[in-house]
Design a protein around this nucleic acid. Structure first.
Lengths: 326, 326
DNA sequence: CTGAAAGCGCTTACAG
DNA sequence: CTGAAAGCGCTTACAG
């Protein structure tokens, strides 16, 4: 890569003059300007933005980073929408890190390289070490959709959500229940299913329960799994006699809804999230308001940017809500 | 802001030793390390990432920027989802610029500061000068949802879309038609409405046409305007006797759908976009596949990053499609 | 374990 | 209109 010195040498001028041309060419003789422009073209010169920033002391950015597992999942997309609703008004840019490709290697060095004003960590198992690393580098951050004792966090009570789902399904007399989740076994999923099973135990219900986990290829758009869930539902109803379903998330439950239309048996389905489309589909689900979580997260982070570094950890637990439809 | 020199002075060591501590403290005597850490804390020191990058020659980034008017609009959110579907697999990060706050001032200096690998310009009237500026700085870019003679662009034929909408509405015998748009009067909107009116003219149809423009406050989430459109629709039907509606976009048309439910008169509605929810709502609309446009844009840009700088401009025009529902 | 020195690629008074 | 020089805040051989 050519530098300002290469250009200066080739053009037979000083780097100061080249620098003036980079800035637009004020106070440079037209012939000199032309000559320098030509050399720049010939060498395919691009000024180094990093160096420009250093000397200009452009150190603070108005950019918020977000660490999110999978934007193709509608729930996370809605969270982002909520976040951006706040950021746009506050005049911040949004930097979305790609965490798909990090087999083994850590993303945190990359995060620290990007001069961010703050970071939102969404649905990500941030370790204590990683949290300390961020703090050590004075990057304010906030964890969403996950409870962490060692960080500011805003989350929804997943166990409670699972209980609500169980409560709903048990209000109908069912024969066999299936829990449908992802083979990734996220913490959120474990908690929801745990809450579900706890409720059965507490109420001494001895219903046969099946657990099925769909293996997720992160390279495929998440919508693909709606189809997989559809087929799985059909199979479980016809071959296993399942008549109650609790899906880890609405997008999987949509597959269940599609299957239900083709079956003459009466089956009950509960999803999780309450995405915008769920109301149109008449899906009974556990509501966790994605956009509001995003907005709340972003505005809280904005507040943290102004605050003292040593503010005690904020732990905000939101309650999910059962939405019965159809 | 404290620098490495301040720390070195306070701690009574050289900047080289401080630098070692920044990197984690290898080859530093524990006492020295402690002392330096303390001074850093006391002065609230944060290493300058820009300087670090300069010296480490970290010049190229794997980040794609996008310039988009309003992510709160579902259509644009879906485009982003399509873009990200590609970027995540290609291992690029996504930088979303906030263009809300730029009254007067240009965003392009900010864009050039960010050391991006490429830029997607979505639904934005990029001037010839701005295009040249980007080229001058060797930032590969691609324009989406807008035809520009002086840039690579991928867009949907809006006039054709307007014609399709007119064709549909005229297949029913209507008394009065309303075109409902935004007072922002984007180019896309003008073209759609122009196509609509052209079709009427060409077919010598002399139907009374009303045009109504909803004024948009960019600080409000776009969903707010669904409600505004709802009220406007009610009013136009009851007070003006309108029985045919062409909405600039589906999200506005949803308001029309909601109004239709409360009216006993038969009215016809066409939207534009065909968002995911539109099928559930039974909305007749002009389809322009947002996710696919995003994917196509991103993958084309990826290709451009590898290509010669002087490749002839790519102009890809997609045809919209009438989707009749209900 | 530590420091002096060179250097990353620029900008910008200052002097001419 | 132009250049020499200092400096932006770091890292990293190299020598000790």
């Amino acid at each position: 890569m050519a530098t300002i010195h290469d250009i200066a040498r080739q053009a037979g001028v000083s780097i100061a003059t080249v620098s003036r041309v980079i800035k637009g060419g004020a106070n440079v003789k037209p012939e000199t300007y032309q000559k320098i422009i030509e050399v720049m073209k010939a060498l395919n010169y691009r000024p180094n933005r990093i160096a420009q920033k250093l000397v200009k002391k452009q150190t603070t950015s108005r950019t918020i980073g977000i660490l999110i597992p999978d934007i193709t999942q509608t729930f996370f997309l809605e969270i982002i929408r909520g976040i951006y609703n706040v950021l746009r008004v506050e005049e911040y840019n949004l930097f979305i890190f790609n965490i798909l490709s990090l087999a083994g290697s850590s993303i945190f060095p990359h995060i620290l390289e990007e001069n961010l004003a703050g970071l939102l960590v969404i649905n990500f198992r941030l370790s204590k070490e990683e949290a300390n690393l961020l703090r050590h580098h004075h990057l304010p951050f906030l964890v969403l959709e996950n409870y962490l004792s060692y960080a500011h966090s805003i989350y929804v009570n997943n166990k409670k959500g699972g209980e609500l789902a169980a409560q709903y399904l048990l209000s109908h007399s069912l024969k066999k229940i299936a829990l449908i989740g992802e083979a990734r076994h996220t913490l959120q999923q474990e908690q929801r299913f745990q809450g579900f099973k706890n409720y059965l135990q507490k109420n001494h219900v001895h219903l046969p329960i099946l657990e099925e986990y769909i293996s997720i290829d992160p390279h495929l758009p998440y919508s693909h799994y709606t189809q997989v869930a559809y087929e799985l539902t059909l199979q479980l109803v016809t071959q296993e006699g399942v008549d109650g379903f609790f899906f880890y998330c609405d997008e999987l439950a949509y597959g269940g809804i599609a299957a239900r239309k083709e079956i003459d048996k009466k089956i009950f389905i509960v999803g999780y999230d309450d995405l915008p489309a769920s109301s149109y589909l008449g899906l009974t689900t556990i509501r966790q308001p994605a956009q509001e979580i995003g907005r709340l997260g972003a505005s809280t982070l904005m507040r943290l940017l102004q605050a003292e570094a040593d503010e005690p950890y904020l732990h905000l637990c939101l309650d999910p809500q059962l939405i019965v439809r159809n």
